[in-house]
Amino acid sequence: MTIVNEASAGTAESGDARVTVRPNAGGGIALELRGPSVARYGDEIRAVALSTLEALGVADAAVTVDEKGALDATIRARLAAAAGRAAGAGDMPWEAMS
């Protein structure tokens, strides 16, 4: 999946995360994490974000995760949705996304 636009998914509500994905051609993955859970779970959230991007085949992207106590499943879902929107992708590689 190639990121060509900026796109977001998610809300600022408790238990959710607002994820924004921007192009970062040739720059690899740049990840910024914000929110109340980052101090306690930063490593986990980072790992979850990176593995999601890998499963989607995204090599270059600038990603911001602004969470409010979101669990991993929510972060994965919001990131995949934002990436899909940013890539203009129609179908998802569901089998890769485990």
């Binding site: 408790s14 238990g15 109340p36 859970s37 306690r40 779970y41 409010k68 106590g69 979101a70 669990l71």
Partner: peptide, 10 residues
């Protein structure tokens, strides 16, 4: 003592 198992992610 009553409490939810999780509060947010905690």
């Amino acid at each position: 003592v009553v409490a939810p198992l999780l509060r947010g992610r905690l």
